[in-house]
Simulated scan of single mutants.
Amino acid sequence: MKDKVVIISGAASGIGEATALLFGKEGAKVIVADIDIEAGKEVVKRIERAGGIASFFKVDVASAAENKSLVDFAVSTYGRLDIAVNNAGIGGEANKIVDMSLEGWHRVIDVNLHSIFYGMKYQIEAMLKTGQGSIINISSILGSVGFEGSVGYVAAKHAIVGMTRNAALEYSSQNIRINAVGPAFIDTPLLDQIDDDIKKQLISLHPIGRLGRSQEVAELILWLGNDKASFATGSYYPIDGGYLAR
């Protein structure tokens, strides 16, 4: 990772934060991208205190223009873009289809799906200029199966897997690798909103007997980002504690 330039969206907390800290530790120049300015800048400080190089960029990933500005910032600040981790997302409205509000549907699709298209559009454009790159899109185990009450989230995460595969078909021959990661339920601030009984139910869905840790997902993302994964493209990598084996 030495001197590689990486964008990580949703990097102020959870999987994104763990990934940013790990890439920084490994020598990458990290753009911590998030809508949360205070938390994002704190992640930058943690990377810098550990001897790494990082910058913060405020972004609403649901905006095409802000995704372009993010890529432009990476290139103007560090000279190029080597790796992009499209991680930002929301859980969205929890309702069955009939009860799902149109606003709730559009919001989760905007943040979780449109953002991946916008990100790749401008990231690939920058990577084509240097003739190489790696993009890791964060999907979910729910990119492979359903989950009652999460129609918008499930639809977006399924679509991310398909879009990743299609993008890999289009650009792998130009030395740009594109993969998707599918975490199961990870113990992040996103799950702090649920009560203990529901959390216990979620734990029971994982044969390994616990929720995942952000650091574990970050290690997989790191591998996909570097040259050790040079033959890995167009694939979907669940990291799920056995969830999908049930």
Rank of each mutant, 00 (worst) to 15 (best):
V98K: 15
V111I: 13
T233S: 10
V108R: 04
V6E: 04
A11H: 00
L191H: 03
G149Y: 07
S173G: 14
G225E: 03
I109R: 08
S214H: 10
S101A: 03
D3N: 14
D82G: 06
S9W: 03
A18L: 06
D82E: 09
V5Q: 04
G133V: 10
A156F: 02
S144F: 08
I15N: 04
H158A: 09
V30M: 04
T164H: 02
E170T: 14
I160V: 14
W105V: 13
I186L: 08
K2M: 11
Q123K: 06
R213S: 06
D82V: 03
F56Y: 11
G242L: 08
D196S: 15
R80H: 09
G16H: 00
Q193H: 06
D196M: 15
I53R: 08
F23M: 11
F57W: 05
M1I: 08
G92A: 01
G146T: 10
K29D: 03
G234Q: 00
I221F: 07
L113V: 04
F185V: 14
K68H: 10
Q201M: 06
D187R: 10
Q215S: 14
A64F: 03
S139P: 11
A180W: 02
K29G: 02
M100G: 09
D196Y: 12
S230A: 15
E148A: 14
G89V: 04
L191D: 00
K96S: 14
K2R: 13
A74G: 09
G143F: 02
A126E: 00
E93W: 04
F57S: 09
A50G: 13
S134A: 13
M100A: 13
K68D: 09
E26G: 05
G24F: 05
V44S: 03
S134M: 08
I160P: 00
F147A: 13
Y78T: 05
G152S: 06
G162A: 10
V32Y: 00
H106G: 15
N87D: 10
V75K: 09
Y236V: 03
V44M: 01
E42H: 13
G91V: 07
A12K: 05
G92Y: 05
A180S: 15
A218W: 01
A18Y: 03
E26L: 12
D36G: 11
V111P: 01
T77C: 12
Y243G: 07
A33S: 11
N86V: 05
A39P: 06
H158W: 14
A12P: 07
V85T: 06
F117M: 13
A155K: 04
E48H: 08
F56E: 02
D195L: 12
P189T: 09
P238H: 10
V5A: 03
I90W: 07
Y237V: 08
K96R: 15
V217N: 03
P183N: 12
K41N: 13
L102E: 09
A28H: 04
N112P: 08
A167F: 04
S144N: 13
Q123W: 04
Y122M: 12
S101E: 00
S69N: 14
A232F: 08
D195P: 10
G27H: 00
S13F: 11
A65C: 00
V71Q: 01
L244H: 06
I176T: 10
S115V: 11
T164G: 04
G149R: 06
T164S: 07
A94I: 14
I186H: 03
V98Q: 09
L202W: 11
A65I: 11
R80E: 00
I31L: 14
N226P: 05
L142W: 05
M163D: 07
S101M: 00
L81I: 06
I239S: 03
